[in-house]
Computed example of a mutant assay.
Amino acid sequence: MSTWFITGASRGLGLQIARTAVAHDDTVVAAVRDPAGLPDDLKRSDRVLGVRLDVTRSEEIVQAVESATQRFGSIDVLVNNAGRGLLGALEEITDAEARSLFDLNVFALINLIRAVLPGMRAAGRGKIVNIGSRSGFEGEPGVSMYAASKFAVAGISEALSAELAPFGIQCMVVEPGVIRTDFLDASSLSTAKHRIGAYNGTPAHVTLDWAGTANHTQLGDPVKSAALIYEVTCQDKLPGHLYLGPDTLERLQVKLDRIEQDAAPWREKSAATAHDDAAA
C-alpha cells in the first residue's frame, strides 16, 4: 500500500488518478483548493484525506505535507497535477499573464517537490510524477507560454531523475495529449486579454478557435489515462517520460523527424566547431 499526494484532485485527470489509487487499496491525499468540493466517493472514503491547498502559496504547501504525514506516516508518490493553460500569440501575452502561468505550472511544482523530498530521502524511496503535456516537447502556435512552462516541467523532471537516483527516489514526467476533461473550460484555460487583429486568420488564432470547438470532445479518455499512469507508477523502474495518448505518439514521431531534418544538413559543420586540438 502506498500513499499518493495528488494536487488538483477534485476533477479531471487528478480525480481519476485518485480514484484509481483508492480502488487499488492505496491511500490518497487529495490536495485541492476546497476539500468540500471533492466528489462524494472520495469524501466518504477512509483512505482519502482531503487537504486545502492553493499550490501557489508556500505556507499552505508546508501545512498540507505535514497533514499528510501526520495522517498516513509518509508520502510515497507525489503527483504534481495542478496546472492550467494559456492561449494567445506570444506578442499578445502580458508579463503578468506569463508569470501567473509559471507560478502555477512551474514554481508551485518546484515548491511541492522541495517539501516532500526530505521525507522521501529519509525513507530512501519515493516517486515523483509530474504531469506535463505533449506541448512539453513540441511548441505550437498559440500556446507558446503554456509550452514553455511544460518544457520546463520536462527539463526539471529529467534533471531530478539523475539528482535523486542516489537516494532511491525516481521521477517521471507524463506527457498527455488532449484528454476529455474540463481543461478547455474557462476554469482551467485562459486567453490573452490583449488581442492583436493582425493575428486573425494566422495559426496562433486558429488554436483559439480549435479550443472553443474541441471542448469535451477530445480524443483521450481520462479514466484509461489515469489507469495507465497508475500502472506505470507502480512499476519498480519508472521511465523518464510517459508519452500518453495516440496523438502524443504521433506528434512525438513528427518531432523526432524534424530534429533529424534540422540536424542532418549541418551535422558535419556543427561537429567541426570544436577547437582543432580537441581530438589531441
Rank of each mutant, 00 (worst) to 15 (best):
S187V: 14
T207I: 11
L184V: 01
D209A: 15
T213D: 10
G212M: 08
T181S: 04
G212P: 12
S190Q: 13
H194P: 00
M172I: 02
T213W: 09
N215C: 10
A204C: 09
D209W: 01
G168L: 09
A198N: 10
W210C: 03
G168Y: 12
T207Y: 13
P166S: 07
A186P: 06
S190P: 01
L208E: 13
V178Q: 05
R195Q: 10
T191R: 08
H205G: 03
T202E: 13
N215F: 13
L189Y: 00
A214V: 14
P176Q: 05
G201Y: 09
L189Q: 07
L184S: 10
H205L: 03
I169T: 10
C171D: 04
F183K: 05
V173E: 05
D185S: 13
H194T: 11
R195W: 05
P166T: 08
A192D: 09
T202D: 10
S188I: 06
D209F: 02
V174L: 08
A165K: 12
V178E: 09
F167M: 05
T181D: 07
V178P: 09
S187K: 08
P203R: 03
P166Y: 01
A198V: 02
R195K: 10
V206E: 15
G168Q: 10
Y199E: 07
A165M: 03
A204Q: 14
A165H: 12
N200F: 04
H194C: 00
Q170E: 13
L184H: 09
G197R: 09
T191P: 00
E175V: 00
V173I: 14
S187Q: 12
D182S: 04
K193L: 08
P176N: 01
A204N: 14
A192C: 09
D182W: 00
V206I: 14
A165E: 12
T207H: 08
N215A: 15
N200S: 14
A211H: 07
Q170K: 07
D182F: 00
A198K: 10
T202R: 14
P176G: 03
I179H: 01
T207G: 06
N215H: 15
A192K: 04
G168E: 11
C171P: 06
T181Y: 07
I196L: 11
V178T: 02
R180G: 00
H194Q: 11
F183V: 13
A186E: 15
D209V: 15
D185E: 13
W210S: 08
V178R: 03
K193D: 12
F183E: 06
L184K: 04
G212D: 12
L189A: 06
S187W: 04
T181F: 05
V173Q: 02
